[in-house]
């Protein structure tokens, strides 16, 4: 096989795999996607909610699959706070199913703890309209924190998650 020399392999491995496009592209893309025929109104909403849920599910699955049993060493990086609130579209659990919902969030938190990415979890009492739950996590960087936030079951129920970097 026509192999590359080691120095070239190293140089290729160091090439950035992420580059920022022109900032105006985001609005162009959002307009293009919203303008799709048949995606207005509920169609637009439903499709992206579905993808968000799918992405969160995959991310959560990867979190669990990557390190299913052995506790990971405490991760380095930065501390972030996830502030959970219902938001206008929140899908509350049916009456009598609150414990089930809390258990689901607990399993998610446990998976983070196994990865050494959870510092603190808790609920605020009484529940408020602004914030009623929080998680303090450790993440490598903003993108890693965003991935963790996206894996939270709260996204599935259309709740709001505010992600804030914690300055120690």
């Amino acid at each position: 096989m026509n192999e590359l020399p080691d120095d070239l392999k190293r140089a290729l491995a160091e090439l950035p795999l992420e580059l920022q496009p022109d900032p105006t592209l985001e609005d162009r893309v959002v307009r293009a996607v919203r303008g799709l025929r048949g995606l207005r109104g509920r169609g637009w909403r439903g499709r992206w909610i579905w993808l968000g849920v799918a992405a969160a599910a995959v991310a959560a699955a990867l979190l669990v699959i990557a390190h299913p049993w052995s506790p990971a060493p405490p991760s380095t990086g930065q501390t972030y706070v996830l502030l959970l609130s219902p938001g206008p579209d929140y899908l509350a659990p049916p009456p009598g199913h609150m414990d089930e919902r809390r258990a689901e969030y607990g399993r998610w938190a446990d998976s983070l703890a196994r990865l050494g990415k959870l510092d603190l979890e808790g609920r605020l009492e009484p529940p408020g309209a602004i914030v009623d739950g929080l998680f303090i996590i450790r993440a490598a960087n903003d993108a890693d924190a965003a991935r963790i936030a996206a894996s939270c079951p709260h996204t599935k129920y259309r709740g709001r998650i505010e992600l804030r970097r914690f300055i120690e």
Binding site: P16, L17, E18, L19, Q20, P21, L25, E26, V29, V30, V33, W44, R45, W48, I49, L51, G52, A55, G87, P88, D89, A143, A146, R147, A150, T155, R158, R160
Partner: peptide
């Protein structure tokens, strides 16, 4: 801004830098 916009923009911001780098190359 709607929550759908928030969700799409979050996905866009997470994945577009990788897509753009690939597209550029």
């Amino acid at each position: 801004m709607t929550s759908d916009d928030d969700l799409f923009r979050a996905l866009y911001r997470e994945h577009t830098p990788a897509l753009y780098a690939l597209g550029l190359r």
